[in-house]
Computed example of a mutant assay.
Amino acid sequence: MDDKNNEIFRQYELKVFNVYRARGAYVLETNQGLKLLKGFEGSKNHLDYENRIKNVLVERGFQNVDLYVANKSGELISQDSNGGRYIVKDWFVGEECNLRDIGDVKRAIRNLAHLHKPMKHISLSEEEHKHYSQIMLTTIYEKHNRELKRVRTYIKDKKQRNEFEATFLTIFNPFYEQGVRALELIRESDYEELYQKALSEENICHGNYTYHNIVFMKSDEATTNFEKALIGVQVADIYQFLRKTMEKNNWNFEYGNAILEEYSKESPLTKEELKLLYIMLLYPEKFWKVTNYYYNNKKSWISQRNIQKLLGISDQREVKDAYLDHLFKEIQ
């Protein structure tokens, strides 16, 4: 245990028995249960906002979240003698959700449905609405579509193209067309009404509901890492979890059906919400992400990993489209 950690430990009403590393942080075995110590680079306002959401969840009966622990001065952020900032929060022993195990997937989506209920009608300040509301998808899709066109123009104008660039031009059209279609559909849909309703009701999304933020304990689940929590339409969490699960399972209908069925058992989705989910899945987000990474780096040498990502997205397009067709028919 190094001196820097001891300097931080002394600022808390904790007796630390054991310390071990875990993903850029330290897990602490203490007299008050398991805790996590990690460096902190965010803002105090955001930390207070995030912790207030977690406190509301606990008050409403959703107990297993990684609440921050205040130090002896009552602060959530502690500082060492070199100016480094740290937080301590509650932590949990268990297994991460395995997205290839349909039992784990069902358990995780049920947990999300349970989580979403107490994340509605959370009283927030005008300032929090200003800083922590979702950006409208129409704005995002317009911007991303412009960026995709810009990258295509940039690559087409190059005299010599590397493997990534040649592959990008070959597969560009169908993905861009899906981006344009998604934007058309969302403009025609009830999305703006759903969005404004979510803001007025002060509903919160986890913002990063992925496998490594879901801990399966022996008889319960814990949900961690609310740093990306935003005020907005909770379908965004379902979309993120469903998309990542489907990508892991080559867009196997069984997983998609299970996710929507299990969520709806706890909290039925409206037709408008299902249509929004379809549009979000239609938008080629992963293609845009890989494209954006390439353009922002503008490297003459592109790693084989990024080329493989691009090829992987292309390889899954047919099975993804088949699932989208299936989902579209289901919601008619």
Results as ranks from 00 to 15, higher is better:
43 S>C: 06
42 G>T: 07
275 K>E: 14
94 G>C: 09
7 E>N: 09
241 F>C: 06
232 G>I: 09
99 L>S: 07
276 L>W: 01
254 E>Y: 05
42 G>L: 08
122 I>T: 03
4 K>H: 06
37 L>F: 05
269 L>F: 05
245 T>Q: 03
251 W>A: 05
183 L>S: 09
225 N>T: 06
146 R>F: 08
115 L>A: 09
9 F>R: 08
118 P>A: 10
190 D>S: 13
71 N>A: 10
173 N>M: 09
130 K>A: 14
71 N>M: 10
236 A>C: 05
21 R>H: 10
208 N>H: 12
234 Q>A: 06
281 L>W: 02
66 D>E: 03
226 F>C: 03
122 I>F: 01
61 G>M: 07
308 Q>F: 07
298 K>E: 11
127 E>V: 14
106 K>I: 12
298 K>C: 08
46 H>Y: 07
253 F>L: 06
19 V>R: 07
197 K>S: 12
247 E>I: 10
187 R>C: 10
222 A>M: 08
144 H>I: 06
113 A>V: 09
268 P>M: 04
237 D>V: 06
20 Y>R: 15
86 Y>A: 07
304 Q>C: 00
284 P>G: 09
23 R>W: 03
68 Y>H: 13
103 G>Y: 07
42 G>M: 05
42 G>H: 02
52 R>N: 13
88 V>F: 05
322 A>P: 00
121 H>L: 04
286 K>G: 02
63 Q>R: 14
40 F>S: 02
64 N>E: 14
128 E>Q: 12
155 I>M: 06
75 E>D: 15
320 K>H: 06
64 N>D: 13
217 M>V: 02
145 N>P: 07
199 L>V: 08
99 L>C: 05
94 G>L: 08
325 D>Y: 02
117 K>C: 00
176 Y>H: 12
289 K>G: 01
100 R>Y: 02
183 L>G: 03
33 G>H: 02
157 D>M: 12
4 K>S: 11
309 K>A: 10
53 I>T: 06
283 Y>Q: 05
45 N>W: 00
240 Q>Y: 08
132 Y>W: 08
139 T>A: 13
124 L>K: 04
202 E>F: 01
84 G>S: 15
59 E>P: 00
229 A>H: 04
103 G>T: 14
260 L>Q: 04
234 Q>K: 06
222 A>C: 09
40 F>T: 01
94 G>A: 09
96 E>T: 10
39 G>C: 00
